[in-house]
Every structure is written in C-alpha cells, then in structure tokens.
Design a protein around this nucleic acid. Structure first.
Lengths: 346, 346
DNA sequence: TTGTAAGCGTTATCAA
DNA sequence: TTGATAACGCTTACAA
C-alpha cells in the first residue's frame, strides 16, 4: 500500500506538499503539481481513510444500521441509500443487527433486546467517526433508537422515531389506505371489506384511518364489522374472506398480497370469480401479485424513494450550518397503485 | 468519544498500562487492573478501530464486496457471512458495487466494466487494512476478480474464480441436476424433458451434465432434443412445454421455478393436470413454488450454507501459518430437494 | 509492575 | 512556494 511518504520521496518533495496538492489547499507551483499528480496516478495511490479520519475527525462516511438485512424492505432501501451517497461522494458502512436471526419476532417492542445490540453498533460507528447515522428499521413501528442528546446527525428510516429530535422517513400508510379505498369507490364499490393486518400494527392502524377518510369523503357509512384483522399470512385471508363475502361486500381491500392470495383461495374453492364477482385489492406489490389470476391490483411499497429521500436528507443535514438546525420532521412517502385485473366496475 | 488517554488520567496511570490491560498483554497488578476495568466499563470506552488498525496493520475486519445487493442470492449469503464473522469476533465491511443498477445485465462478461468499479472497491478495503476479502458474485460464472499476486487472503463466493490461486465456494449444480433427475427416475419416470436456462449459462451446463449422468447410470438413453433452452422467464416454460409434451415426456425438469410456473400455465390452458398427468420439478425454491397448485417440488439453493462456509474458510485462512498455505479449492455446496406435490409415480 | 517514546498515514499550523 | 513538526488514538519495544 503506497503512502504519501513514498510519493514524497519519489518526487523529492515533502509530504505536506503532497497532502496540499491532493487536497488543493495551498498554492503550489504548477511544475511540482504536475510531477506529483503524475506519480500519484502511476502508483495508483489511495489515501488511507483511517489516517485521514483520525486526523480530520470526520470521514465522509455515513453509517447505516439495519435491524435485519433479510427483511424484504431492507435491501432496496439500503441500495438506494448507498447509490445516493456514492453519487455525493460519501462512503457508507453497514451494520446488520440481524434481529430476526437472534430473536425471531419477539423483539419489535423489546427495548432491552434492541439496545443490547444497538448500543455496540452505535459505539462502533461513533468510534469510526462516521459523519451521520441512518437507522433502517425492518419492522414499521415507533422506535427509540437514539438518545435525545445524541450528538451525531441521525435519521430513522422506515419507522417512526420516538424522540421528536430525529427526522423519520416512513411510508404514507394513511394515504395508501385512502388511495386504495378511493380507487375502489371510483369503480363504483360502496360495500368494501378490509382484511387488515394485526390490530396492534402501525401500518394496519394508519391504513384503516385512510380507509375511513375515503369513505367519509364519499359519505359512505363506515361499518367497523367489515374490518377483519388477520395476521398477514395467506391463511388469514382465506379465513376472513368467508365472513366478508357473507356480509355482501363487493370489494375486499387486503393489507398485503399474501392475504389477498388467501382470499383468492377461498373464492376459487367456492366458485366465486376474483375480480369478476368480487373485486380485490392487495398491498405491497410482492412477486405473487403478478402471478395471481387475475393479476392483483395492489399498492407498491416505495422502498427506493424512502432510501433516496433518507440519504438526501442526511446529506442536507451534514452540509448545513450547525446554527440553522434543520427541524426534525416526519417525511411520508406515498405508495403507488399498480393497476392490474382484480378490480372491476360494479 | 472517550479515549485511552482520558482513562489513563482518570486512573492515574499511563496509557500503555491501559492498553496492556485491555489487550491482556503484560503482567499488571490486580489492583490497577480492577480499577482500570471499572473505569472502562463506566465510561463505556470503545477502542478507536482506525487508530488500532493503523498501528497494528491488521484490523479484525473482513471486507465483503458484493456485485449487487439486490440480487436475491446476495442478502442471505451476506447475512450468514456476517453472522459467522460476528461469532468469531470479526467485524465486516460491505461494499455494494450495484452492477445491475449501473449496467442492467450487460456486465457479466465485461471485464472492463467490472474492473472499473472493482479496483476502487478493493483499494478502499486495502487502504482500510482489512484482513481478508470475500467477493460475493451476483451472477454465477467464472470471474476474474483478483490479480494472481494479490497479497490479502481472498475467496470468491457464488462464482468460480478464474485464477486457481483463490478458493471458490459455489453451488453444486451438477449434483443438483443429478439429484433431481435421479429423484424423477426413482418415481418411475424414464422420459424426462428439461426446460433449461440459457445455453451459455454455467448453471445450465452443469445441471445438464448431472442430468446426463443420472440417465447414464440408469442406462436410460439421452435424447438431446429433450433439452430445451429457455431464458429463465416464465414464458419460456410455457413455450417449451408444448414441444416436450408433444414428445411424450412424463416428467419435466425446469431449471427455475418461474419456468416451471410457465409449464403449469401451458398445462392448465390445455387441460393437462400438473403432477397428475405430467410431473414437474423446479429449481430455486422461490416463493412461487409453494404457491403453485399443486405445490412445486424443487431444489433449494443453499445460500446460507454458502455464506457460512465462505466465512468459515476465510477465518481458517486468516488463522493458519503463512507457511502451510492452504491450497485453493473449489468448494461445492449441494442443494436440497424440497418435496411437494408436483411429482407423482408413473 | 509501570512508564516513556516511537511510529502507523494523514492534515494543520507555523516557520522559512 | 515549500518544509518541519505536532497531533489524531493506539500498540509495543525498551527503559526504569
């Protein structure tokens, strides 16, 4: 690994001159500049980030902490964060806490478990002197990741920050629920059942709010019995379909595609044609939604936009004056309806 | 960020004493040891990895370079690498080259494109003084990632290293093709068609070899016309199904689940019952395989094992004597057949 | 048993 | 326009 010292020797100048040239800091004669840059190019010299970071106390590195890399939301979010940072000449460093591997699904609201792995992760990033930290949640909820007096710029991604000191970037679930319901209504449906997620889930709650809002705006009465809570799994779509169909709904809004598939299952088994007889809308735009027959109309999760937006905000945070302290905020990214063939006019 | 110097002051000893205690290097009086460790704990002191790495020229960090984090193979492989390294007290650092984002699918055999991003990535890891590098390919093939005289321990994961100097950890495709064919034969099938991947693909070629071997062992004549090359997409399963079925095969081995789904499509459209009338086996064990009706028997890709094995080899490499130079090798990890309902006895 | 000092590769300050 | 030197936080050889 070639160093500035070696370059200096090869050029017959001092290391500070090399450093100055590389950083464009001071006036240097064009002659030496050329000579040095030539050697730098030839040798393929790369600065040592460790040494740089040590000296400058800032590294141009942005730390990313992910709750779980295997969550389907994580890779696309992280990918876009990395892309944006790369474009802006920042490096990234990723710490994967692997919560699911360690605790299955018992950690969502267990602060103790979370902090037992989060604290070392943060320490590591701090010790490495990252310029900022992005916390990428793997499960949407309100999460307490950073202490209120945290000194490094930090943003919470795909979950709501408990502390109002930190900006969160989240899915706009209320709008998502609203849009889907609105879409169904625009196709003439007025009796719309819902296969919701688990009742304690934030996504579930906000999407229901959106559903209510859309009904309200159209002056359609809201019937709480038509909200059926599932567990996000295919079978709970199957189970709740029966109830809703007996209630006489003309459309069913499922809060994920798997449960929508379960609704299809029930319909096929009972000679009801999805789409033609009863309309169905899903959520997530997972692979399965295009495989279903008829292909499922669903709401696409905006992971890429969430990633890009988060990185963008972080870099903005880093480049602002300390004085003008950007106020923390909750940034909501809308979903996009993917129209396929499971919703028909009534 | 608390440093050794501050700890030293708080304890009234020198920094070298602190360092020695922390690294268990030299004899230190139990009294001071206790005192120091107490303060360390209280302050939550964390060593600065930069400084450590600079001084020691070794960091206990393993670099991971991934061709593309969004490939479905990458996250599970990387997850297991990270898990194993964490267990063995190594940190990891991930560089995502994002090849697909940059060049769609035109980069597989374009060394120029590859090296334009790989070289800086390697430089970065080198400058950071990682102890070793794992190269995680996103597309199975023979790849030229490291120069022959590369000084840092390196392993190629999910692809074959062009240079024999480096160990590769790959899927055992030949065994995979063999196992599936063998399985079909054991169910009484003797006329087995294949919907293969693209002809120039390494996975395709090796799986065909396995197919041939299984036929040969059972003295079943090999009919090259029954190998139909697709493009991995669902529709090519649909297209090739027609030919194979007209040829009178009783079973079809598809080299991925998507193409198997295409075969199902053709069968449904033509009143042929998948499983009952003609048996089907897939490959990959993607989500869709359990959704198909009947659920698809398929070969699971051993990403976790590949990840674990790679990390294991790396750490073994790092801990061996320089002298006994472990010989580079090609480690083949077998797939596992997931039996579902698409294969019936004939 | 403990401390001093040099050095890892940079950058910043100051002097020449 | 350039160079010497100190400092960042840590480890280690050597001295005490």
């Amino acid at each position: 690994m070639i160093t500035q010292k070696e370059i200096a020797e090869m050029c017959g100048v001092s290391v500070s001159t090399i450093s100055n040239i590389l950083n464009g800091k001071r006036k240097v004669s064009e002659a030496t500049r050329q000579r040095v840059l030539e050697v730098v190019k030839q040798t393929g010299y790369q600065p040592n980030y460790f040494a740089q970071g040590m000296r400058k106390q800032k590294t141009n590195i942005i730390g990313i902490i992910t709750e779980d890399l295997l969550q389907f939301s994580s890779p696309p979010i992280i990918e876009r964060i990395m892309a944006y940072c790369e474009d802006m000449n920042y490096r990234t460093i990723l710490i994967n806490m692997r919560m699911y591997d360690k605790w299955k699904d018992t950690w969502y609201n267990d602060e103790q478990k979370l902090h037992s792995v989060l604290k070392p992760a943060i320490q590591e990033l701090l010790s490495i002197k990252v310029d900022g930290i992005l916390y990428v949640a793997g499960h949407g909820r309100t999460v307490n990741c950073f202490p209120d007096d945290f000194e490094v710029p930090a943003i919470v991604v795909y979950a709501y920050s408990k502390s109002p000191k930190f900006t969160s970037v989240v899915i706009d679930d209320e709008k998502g629920g609203y849009d889907i319901t609105q879409y169904l209504i625009s196709r003439g449906h007025r009796k719309i059942g819902v296969v919701a997620g688990t009742a304690d889930n934030l996504h579930t709650q906000k999407r229901i709010l959106g559903y209510q809002k859309a009904l309200y705006e159209e002056r359609i009465p809201y019937n709480p019995d038509w909200i059926r809570y599932g567990d996000w799994k295919r079978n709970s779509g199957y189970l709740e379909a029966e109830y809703l169909i007996k209630e006489g709904v003309t459309a069913i809004f499922c809060m994920n595609d798997d449960m929508a598939a379960g609704v299809y299952d029930y319909m096929y088994e009972n000679g009801i044609r999805p789409g033609d007889d009863i309309s169905i809308a899903g959520y997530d735009n997972m692979e399965i939604s295009s495989y279903l027959k008829p292909a499922l109309t669903t709401n696409e999760l905006p992971f890429s936009e969430i990633g890009t937006k988060s990185a963008e905000l972080m870099i903005k945070l880093l480049n602002q004056d300390k004085s003008e302290k950007m106020t923390a905020d909750v940034i909501k990214i809308p979903c996009r309806i993917i129209e396929r063939n499971s919703v028909k006019n009534v």
